[in-house]
Each structure stands twice: as C-alpha cells, then as structure tokens.
Amino acid sequence: MIPLVPDIAHFLAGLLVLLSFVQLYQSRLPPLISIFAAQSLALATFVAWQAQIQHAPHLVITAGITLIFKVMIIPLALHGLIRSLKIHRTVETVVGIGPAMMTGMALVGLSMALMMRTSAAVDVVVREDIAFALSVVLLGLLMMVTRRNAVSQAIGFMSLENGLVLAGTGAKGMPLVVEISVAFSVLIAFIVVGIFIFRIRERFDTVDIAVLDRFRGERP
C-alpha cells in the first residue's frame, strides 16, 4: 500500500479529535455549532476516503448522509433553534477551560494507551483509527458532563456519535454500518426536534434543592 493512503485517513481522524478539543472550550453557541459542522465535514471526507480505499461503495451512502444531514441540515436547524429560544447571545459558564482541557488530554492519552496495547492481530491502520475514534467518543462524553445547556449537550452527543461513525467505518468490512448510521440520524433528529418542541433550555433550570425534591417526588 502506498504510505500516503493510511496517512490521509489518519490525518482526517486526527482532525476530528482536534475539532473535539476546539468544541470543548467554546463558550458561545453559534461558533460551537459551526465547529460541529466542520467536524462532520471532516468525518464525511474520512468516510468517503474509506469507501475509496476499502472498495466499499455502500460507505458512500454513509458519507452522503453525514454530509447532507450533519453538515447542512442539523447545523442550520440548530442556528434557527437558538435564535428562536433567544439563547444565541448567552455565554455559557464552562466548567473551567483549563481543567476541561487537561481532562480531555488525559482521556486521549488513555484511549491511545488502551488501543495500542491490543495485540497486532488487528490491522495497525485500523487500530490507530479506532484509538482516534475512542478519543472523540470520550471527549464527546466529557462535553456532555461539563455543559448544562441542552443544546450544547446535544452537540456533545452528536460529536460522540461522530466518533462512533469513525469507528464503524474505519473497521474494515463492518456489517450494517449504513443501517446503524441511519438509525443514529433518526436519534439525532429526535433530539433536535425534542429541544425545539419542548423548549428545553437547561436540564434543571434551578439549583434550588426544594424544586429538585418536588420533581423527584421526595416531598410528602
């Protein structure tokens, strides 16, 4: 194989990890959405490249879904959504950018250490892609726990899902990848529609314990 072929795949997968980090420290929603769109574009390119090098034409469908759905429709809908909820100017208090970035780096280190230790029975190129994918998944999870705004939590989930698609398409010959990516797109559509219909701004609008108690039904 020409060395350039896996290099391009690794470059694109690394780009996804990088864009996950950029999402981590974005405190305003409009740039956050744009970076998510850029990450999805990198993913679509990665999947298209995999379709080329694996000679797997069905992956083109996954790339197309990613391009149309996650690069165009979802970001546009989210931009409209934050305008109609009037939260496009709010600055979110992120749980300390420093600690979040440090945790993120530790998570990337963890996923590299974990995946590189698995035996060489797995294709080396694939193994490195999976290490990147695990990093994206863990960074998405980190973003979900450090944010309180429902929209940024949803973006955290979607970037987590980008990591899963990265893993699924990077694993050569994985069955049902297209079906799984369709199922995930339905899930994401539900999240966005859910936020829109129910006007969910934050998971808990208040830190007042009494209100939480009422919600949990703890009060007699």
Partner: peptide
C-alpha cells in the same frame, strides 16, 4: 429528556463495544 439523554449515551457506548467485538 433525562431518560433520552442517559439512554442515548448508554446505547452509544454499547455500539462502540459492538464495533470493538467485530474488530
């Protein structure tokens, strides 16, 4: 909403596990 978010994260992790089993 709580069920949805936690359930989604759960099934996302399960999918990653499934992909690793395939690998």
């Amino acid at each position: 909403w709580k069920y949805f978010i936690l359930g989604s994260v759960g099934i996302a992790l399960a999918l990653f596990g499934t992909i690793l089993v395939y690998l």
